[in-house]
């Protein structure tokens, strides 16, 4: 350890600049989120004049109105549903295939593994993908959100590497007891792989929550819109939603005076669409980092 006395002036200047710079970097990363949040809970007219650090006159009318509109809570639920279902399917089936790939007695193991890994580098392009999904009848279907991507080559590499270092004895004893493939997988392998499964679940769920091109290009059904596309639509003043909201603003005069502005509503929808990420963020971050470490070791 270098003692304080031996630290040169240059080092001390570096330290101060370093702390200042890192504080600034952190501020730039987090402040936009904070700003949108305080704007969304401010009185609109005050917000328009500028809010910087504290909300101006606490006001959640925008949220009250948003949740009384059918569109946004519904889209939020669709996003939650698709994320949960996709994550479960992806984690379970990718793990099962990864487990199969650890079985050296399986014929054609190497060929099949290569086929799966090569899927990582193949990219048909937007149009062929679109046509294929349409041909499979996934257009305007909830299945479009949860079927593609269940088997993911990168996750399979991660899980396979993890399963390979589990002690083989556990599995062997179960097999001697006469347990079949599914029993061994469900009762032993899958539960033992919990750390890596959690990591993969995090990758899969964040990806699914944030995806929207599939919805945008292939799903017109208003009941299947996801929160991302609704947010984008409103940011771009998409027709129907803007009408809903302007009708809402016009009605605001009846009864209690509501404090609303298009900006406040935009900010509120943004907050709603990032909220799930922020809520589970500590869990997300821990597992993402674990994944990146494992990926780095592998790659």
């Amino acid at each position: 350890m270098i003692s304080n006395q031996r630290r040169s002036l240059a080092e001390r200047i570096f330290d101060i600049l370093n702390y200042a710079f890192m504080a600034l970097f952190s501020f730039i990363c987090i402040y936009p989120f904070y700003y949108v949040f305080i704007y969304s809970i401010s009185e609109p007219r005050l917000a328009q004049k500028g809010v910087y650090l504290w909300p101006g006159q606490f006001n959640v009318d925008a949220y009250i109105k948003i949740f009384s509109l059918h569109t946004i809570p519904h889209a939020f639920l669709v996003s939650v549903e698709k994320t949960v279902i996709f994550t479960v399917l992806c984690v379970y089936f990718s793990s099962m295939l990864a487990y199969l790939f650890t079985k050296h007695v399986m014929p054609f193991r190497k060929v099949m593994y290569r086929i799966v890994i090569s899927s990582m580098y193949l990219n048909s392009g937007l149009i062929p993908w679109y046509i294929t999904m349409k041909t499979y009848g996934l257009r305007n279907s909830f299945l479009l959100y949860v079927l593609p991507g269940i088997i993911n080559a990168f996750y399979i590499i991660l899980i396979k590497t993890y399963i390979e270092q589990l002690p083989a004895s556990l599995e062997e004893s179960a097999q001697i007891d006469g347990a079949g493939f599914m029993t061994v997988f469900n009762r032993i392998i899958f539960p033992l792989s919990k750390p890596i499964v959690a990591t993969v679940a995090v990758y899969a769920s964040v990806g699914c929550w944030n995806s929207w091109i599939d919805n945008y290009l292939l799903v017109e059904n208003p009941n299947l819109q996801t929160i991302q596309v609704i947010l984008f639509g409103y940011l771009n003043e998409a027709q129907s939603l803007t009408q809903d909201i302007s009708a809402m603003l016009a009605n605001a005069g009846s009864g209690r005076q509501l404090h609303l502005s298009p900006e406040t509503i935009k900010m509120s929808i943004t907050v709603i669409s990032v909220l799930p990420i922020i809520l589970v963020y500590p869990f997300l971050q821990k597992n993402f980092i674990k994944g990146i470490m494992l990926g780095a070791v592998k790659g």
Partner: peptide
């Protein structure tokens, strides 16, 4: 961890 749509919203 956020989508480009949210980046757009923040940037806006």
């Amino acid at each position: 961890f956020i989508s480009w749509i949210v980046v757009f919203a923040l940037s806006f």
